[in-house]
Design a protein around this nucleic acid. Structure first.
Length: 987
RNA sequence: GGUCGAUUAGCUCAGUGGUAGAGCACUGCAUUGACAUUGCAGGGGUCACAAGUUCGAACCUUGUAUCGACCACCA
């Protein structure tokens, strides 16, 4: 006999170890079996399991276990991502904490060695957490993106793309992270709205020239006309004025037509060396916005960069890699003179010359960019070059309002590094790029042609939208942790791209001294190769042949661009045009139960491991309040956590968590995770456990063989039919990625049908005399339970495997058994009708008893009036069990009902409870009236519909017939009930 | 500005044109034998709003309102 309850802690890890040791997670490599592969989205080596991972991996595990049981050759490919920036950050912080070391003083090799040490010691806890969840990955084939074989793949991919011209080096404006001092891709930049200011400054015209500035309204009437010796500019980033190369206005802007082509002065820096820049036209400025004139700082703004390129405007870089104003090069006085000659067209320039020029005036050199901003603003204002307006604070006063500098407070979008959280600075630097546009085309086509399908399909719009507007992908990072770019330079900068140093040397020729590029590749470059690099590419391995393309990619939408798109591009490119996976299942983001994103700063994170192992309230609060960025938030977090989870979390176990996630995994977008539901599904596991215990009490034969088509009892035929129906529903739902439907179908069958009905119905037989009927029920009971174990196994692997193990001597694991319902579909309509009638009869009698307040324990005499032959037969067959479940003293066929009894109609017959003395006839009339009212409402509706000629003519005939039949049934019921009511009222 | 989505029971959510559903919560009853992590019964919804298509709309179309996500943005 199994224990009274299932204790997850006693079994989960033990069972997992047994599975792993026996090699159950390895692919069968059975050549006759259909291959089935899922590539895990490799978690960061620094990562630890969060709810998103738990959902993601539960879904993958359900698919893998399901397909494995269906006989497929399954590889769930696990591994980890080296996560360049994140990992380097972790280790750098750790070094700083332990003795103030920094990577630059250590040197590259020593630092990288440290990271490896850290990886071996602390990296990859997430993989062990996945095991706690029950993930059936092929662990023996675990890969890491920096493994030697994967690095070979990375180098080959790079070299091939380079040789085809799809990777190139260029000087471009890229997103620069001043904290990590590296370029990052567009995707790693998060644009956030922040409170900002827009300053308005005057750029004086060269040589004191003036012009007539005219503003007109929509009808062409002059609203302002004045003589100006300046052009007004608005900016949110005054410090970049130092690098302006021009002022641009729209070609159609009449206000500035008189001064286009003239020079104006940047009103900052030493007076005697003021730089002059040309006023040019470009389509970019919006005449409606600000003053209509835009300062062009090609080296520090993405839009200005385009304008500068079009107009051949020099792009002066102002900052160093830390985001400080440059302090290198010649003194400002000397450089400014050169810049003036360039602006006047008197001196030629090229890229190298411009980038060597440091146009930061001496007094700003070395300042942090935000300090420099303050200084620039105050200097310009002091000199009187700020645009002034009347102070709005004084607008109601009679005296003239004093003038103040024109500074607008407004929300501006600012780019932040998604890892560092600091403001990103566009910087002109040499970087490596992938020609993403070329690679994207076949990937777009593959989705359009249906070689790869998004599930739910509307995500393809998001995919197209991004892929069709894709920009060159910046793949070089100024980091040390990652795949070093396989490019070597000769002494004169000649480029040799090759997979190894010796190959590069061969290209360069003997004796040439080669230096390898210092940069590493974007982590996503190697992740993009994951579906084939993990299977041995570029070697033609069995793994590659068998498991490429994979079946399904399971991931969240926030990674479609980062990863999915790149795998599509790379997979098609390197695997002869074949897509890396057939389906892309995009699942929801897990939020807290009120729909808030889980975040450390909100203190609402639910750690999956806490739900599995349990955590008490104090520990939970402590966990949620430590590490908050805003300490003032902590007390609130503590309060809300204690209120919501006064007892912390029970140890619900992995199965309950998995089942919850599956049941909530609809094809919508968000999952609001409620701990109550986890508790509910933990109870479901207990229910199954105790049902098994029940079976054991009657010495049920587990491991028995049952032939569904040669059973004697309708009860058994019925439950097996229901089981198969359920198996089919679950299979179809999983195939269709409707995990919630699959979980619901299984839950409903096990609890509502099997436990609540089958077990109750079987009790009289199990507790009765020995004989063939009892033997059959015992066999079917055990057999059905075993199929239930199998059916639930993909969702609840631990408890089902434990039950399997503990109910009989087993020669193999449950996870290796056949998926139920494959071989013999069995459904007996007669048995289904018959048991349907039993269930209906019992339920209705129970309902009536409760309605008229018959004491729950009282046994009442009952009879059935108007039963046809078949019903009479059913009464004989099921009398015992009906009497037991409905608590009847007798249940007999009768010709007429005794007066004053309580009645309910089941199909053609009327059940009569002979309890006139127990009840108040007035209340009973009321009850019947209520039911009749409901019935009449429905009948009226149906009659109206069926009376509508258009309905009868146009609706499908089967629908009309169905409604007719329903109407007849309802009318029959109504007639019987109203007869009962009249009899009762007559007393 | 572009794109996608949501609005159904007190709460969290299913529901692809034909009788409005689940879990939790709530109410009443039930305690020796599988299970109180339980059982039985019950209350509770104008499916955001409006118009349209249709014999018939929670579902299709259009519009409105509110909320959300992503992308791109005005110096």
């Amino acid at each position: 006999m199994i224990d009274q309850r299932f204790d997850p802690k006693a079994h989960e890890q033990r069972i997992y170890q047994r599975w792993e040791e026996s090699g159950c997670f390895r692919p069968s490599m059975d050549t006759s079996a259909e291959p089935y592969a899922i590539m895990i989205p490799p978690p960061n080596v620094t990562g630890s399991l969060h709810m998103g991972h738990a959902l993601n991996n539960t879904i993958q595990d359900i698919l893998c276990r399901f397909e494995r049981m269906r006989g497929k050759n399954v590889r769930w490919q696990p591994g980890m991502d080296h996560a360049g920036i994140a990992t380097q950050m972790v280790v750098e912080r750790k070094l700083a904490a332990n003795g103030n070391q920094d990577r630059r003083s250590m040197g590259r090799d020593a630092f990288v060695e440290k990271v490896w040490e850290w990886k071996e010691e602390s990296g990859g806890t997430i993989l062990n957490q996945l095991k706690r969840l029950g993930a059936s990955c092929d662990w023996e084939n675990t890969k890491f993106t920096l493994d030697e074989d994967l690095s070979v793949a990375v180098n080959k991919a790079f070299v091939d793309l380079y040789n085809e011209g799809l990777i190139y080096r260029a000087k471009r404006l890229v997103n620069w992270d001043p904290q990590f001092q590296t370029a990052i891709s567009n995707l790693e930049v998060e644009n956030k709205e922040v409170d900002g200011h827009m300053w308005h400054f005057k750029y004086p015209l060269a040589g004191g020239q003036t012009y007539t500035y005219v503003e007109k309204d929509a009808d062409g009437n002059v609203t302002l006309e004045e003589t100006r010796d300046y052009i007004s500019i608005a900016t949110t980033r005054p410090e970049t004025m130092l690098g302006d190369g021009a002022v641009a206005v729209h070609p159609s802007d009449e206000r500035y037509a008189p001064i286009v082509g003239k020079l104006c002065e940047i009103p900052v820096g030493p007076k005697e060396f003021r730089r002059l820049i040309p006023i040019i036209t470009d389509e970019y400025p919006d005449p409606e916005f600000g003053s209509g004139a835009v300062k062009i700082t090609g080296a520090h703004d993405m839009n200005d960069y385009q304008v500068a390129k079009r107009g051949n405007i020099p792009m002066y870089a102002l900052m160093d890699e830390k985001g400080f104003m440059r302090a290198d090069g010649e003194a400002y006085a000397e450089v400014a003179v050169v810049a003036l000659r360039i602006a006047e067209g008197k001196e030629d320039f090229d890229e190298a010359k411009i980038s060597a020029m440091n146009l930061v005036p001496d007094q700003y050199r070395g300042l942090d960019r935000f300090e420099a901003r303050k200084a620039v603003i105050s200097d310009i204002t002091a000199e009187g070059n700020a645009v002034m307006i009347a102070d709005p604070k004084h607008k109601d006063e009679e005296t003239e309002a004093p003038l103040i500098p024109y500074v607008e407070n407004k929300k501006i979008m600012q780019p932040f590094g998604d890892r560092s959280g600091v403001v990103i600075e566009p910087m002109l630097t040499d970087q490596w790029f992938v020609d993403a546009e070329t690679l994207a085309k076949p990937a777009i086509a593959a989705v359009r042609e249906g070689q790869t399908k998004f599930v739910p399909e509307n995500w393809d719009r998001t995919f197209y939208n991004w892929m069709e507007n894709i920009e060159p992908w910046c793949i070089s990072r100024q980091l040390w942790w990652g795949h070093r770019i396989p490019v070597w330079y000769g002494a004169d900068g000649e480029v040799f791209c090759a997979q190894t140093l010796s190959e590069a040397q061969a290209l360069a020729g003997d004796g040439v001294v080669l230096e390898q590029d210092e940069d590493v590749l974007d982590t996503w470059f190697s992740s993009g190769l994951w579906p084939f690099s993990t299977q041995g590419w570029p070697e033609e391995t069995d793994g590659l042949k068998t498991f490429y393309p994979g079946a399904t990619l399971v991931t969240a939408f926030d990674i479609i661009f980062f990863w999915v798109a790149r795998m599509m591009m790379m997979g098609i490119k390197f695997m002869d045009g074949e897509v890396p996976f057939k389906d892309i299942y995009i699942h929801a983001i897990v939020r807290d139960e009120v729909g808030k994103k889980m975040s450390k700063s909100e203190g609402n994170v639910i750690d999956p491991v806490d739900l599995i192992d349990g955590i008490d309230a104090d520990a939970l609060v402590a966990k949620r309040t430590t590490g908050l960025r805003q300490p003032e938030k902590a007390p609130q977090v503590e309060k809300s956590t204690r209120k919501r989870y006064p007892k912390g979390f029970d140890a619900y176990g992995a199965d309950a968590l998995r089942f919850t996630l599956a049941a909530m995994a609809t094809k919508g977008r968000d999952i609001n995770l409620s701990v109550d539901r986890v508790a509910g599904y933990r109870n479901f596991g207990s229910k199954l456990w105790s049902a098994t215990r029940f079976a054991q009490m009657y010495e049920t034969g587990f491991d028995a063989s049952v032939n569904p088509s040669s059973l004697g009892l309708a009860l058994n035929q019925w439950i097996i039919g229901e089981l198969y129906k359920c198996c089919e529903q679950v299979s179809e739902a999983i195939e269709d990625y409707r995990f919630n439907d699959a979980a619901d179908a299984a839950y409903h069958f096990v609890w509502d049908v099997f436990c609540d009905w089958y077990l109750e119905l079987s009790k009289p037989i199990l507790q009765g005399d020995d004989g063939p009927e009892k033997d059959e029920v015992k066999a079917v009971l055990g057999w059905t339970l075993e199929r239930i174990f199998a059916l639930l196994h993909p969702f609840m692997p631990f408890i089902t495997e434990t039950l399997w193990e503990q109910t009989a001597e087993r020669s193999s694991f449950l996870m290796q058994q056949k998926w139920p319902g494959l071989d013999h579909g069995f459904f007996n309509q007669d048995a289904s009708d018959e048991l349907g009638w039993v269930l209906k009869t019992v339920s209705q009698i129970r309902s009536v008893r409760a309605d008229v307040n018959v004491p729950a324990g009282a046994k009442v005499p009952a009879s059935l009036v108007g039963a046809n032959e078949e019903t009479a037969r059913r009464v004989e067959a099921h009398r015992d069990v009906i009497m037991r479940l409905a608590r009847l003293e007798k249940f007999e066929i009768a010709d007429a009902a005794p007066a004053g009894s309580v009645k309910t109609v089941v199909d053609e017959a009327t059940v009569v409870l002979e309890i006139a003395d127990l009840i108040d006839s007035g209340e009973e009339v009321e009850r019947l009236d209520k039911q009749l009212g409901k019935l009449n409402g429905e009948i009226t509706g149906l009659e109206k519909r069926l009376g509508n000629e258009a309905f009868v003519a146009k609706a499908p005939p089967e629908v009309v017939a169905e409604q007719r039949e329903r109407l007849t049934d309802l009318q029959g019921t109504r007639d019987k009930l109203s007869l009962a009511r009249e009899q009762l009222a007559a007393i």
